[in-house]
Design a protein around this nucleic acid. Structure first.
Length: 271
DNA sequence: CCATGAACCTGGTCGC
DNA sequence: TGCGACCAGGTTCATG
């Protein structure tokens, strides 16, 4: 499911209910949900400890205790929310009982989402690429990466080890905004397009966060409210419709293993 | 180093 | 209405 703006939206929606509170118990309904630790580990290490912080790193939700963290990845269909009682919903992977009596629910239709436990956030920080909304991510940094690699730009932008947080929707949108064909080899992209790409990555992600993310199918947060960025999409999901810039018919094709939307007229491949 | 396809899961949609 | 094929916001692993 979610990319950076959607994960950020989830973090903002659960932060205040978690910070200062404690986990009291956990019920596991899909055993694989705990990736690198067991229910006993959870009970032994995370119960009755005050939650210090709730943050986002890339597409991970970080629940911080002291140095150690519970990291949650929603993958395609994961949802996190609070409830006052246990529901009989079908696809619940885990339920955490809170010290204040509420239930912290992880619902996940496709069951790809996972909980991870780490002694510190260093492991994730070392593995993941740069945060695109940080100041370190700028046009010079991006130019160096693109020009030092010979890689299809769409695959490069989706690679979480390089830039962390972009996914299929925002890559398609940002490549369209900067007139770059998704199959362009990264070191063939002119600097003037890289400048636009850098700027559009930041502004697209920030606009989407401001709109509480994109709802494609039924992504929801906080009791079913939907993200409003869907209204601002130009190219994603618009196959067969006219390009908002040049009116050419938008095409969809499998690129880098993902359904990819682009305008064949104004996104030029220069390989 | 890079590209591709399968795997992990369930459900929705489309064509016949 | 029913059924099979294909698709889905992500990531990882094997293979060439």
């Amino acid at each position: 499911m979610p990319e950076l703006p959607e994960v950020e939206t989830v973090v903002q929606s659960i932060r205040d209910k978690l910070i200062g509170n404690e986990f009291e118990n956990i019920e596991i309904r899909w055993p694989k949900v705990l990736f690198n630790f067991s229910k006993e580990d959870f009970l032994n290490t995370l119960i009755n400890r005050k939650i210090q912080r709730v943050d986002r790193r890339a597409k991970f939700i970080i629940i911080g205790f002291d140095d150690d963290i519970l990291a949650i990845h929603l993958r395609m269909t994961g949802k996190l929310y609070f409830q006052n009682n246990l529901s009989q919903k079908k696809h619940i992977s885990a339920i955490i009982t809170m010290n204040n009596g509420g239930y912290f629910i992880f619902e996940d239709t496709r069951k790809f989402g996972r909980f991870y436990y780490y002694n510190s956030q260093d492991y994730l920080n070392n593995k993941l690429g740069i945060e695109p909304l940080s100041n370190e991510f700028n046009d010079i940094w991006l130019k160096n990466i693109l020009h030092n690699k010979k890689r299809m730009i769409k695959a490069l932008l989706l690679d979480q080890n390089i830039i962390a947080g972009l996914g299929n929707i925002y890559v398609d949108e940002c490549l369209w905004k900067s007139n770059i064909h998704p199959q362009t080899v990264s070191n063939k992209i002119p600097f003037k397009n890289i400048l636009i790409l850098c700027k559009e990555i930041k502004s697209t992600l920030q606009s989407s966060i401001n709109a509480h993310g994109t709802t494609v199918v039924n992504f929801t947060f906080l009791n079913g409210q939907s993200g409003k960025y869907s209204d601002q999409l130009n190219i994603f999901g618009k196959e067969g419709r006219p390009c908002p810039r040049c009116s050419q018919t938008i095409k969809k094709k499998k690129i880098a293993g993902r359904g990819t939307h682009f305008c064949p007229k104004c996104q030029i491949k220069r390989n």
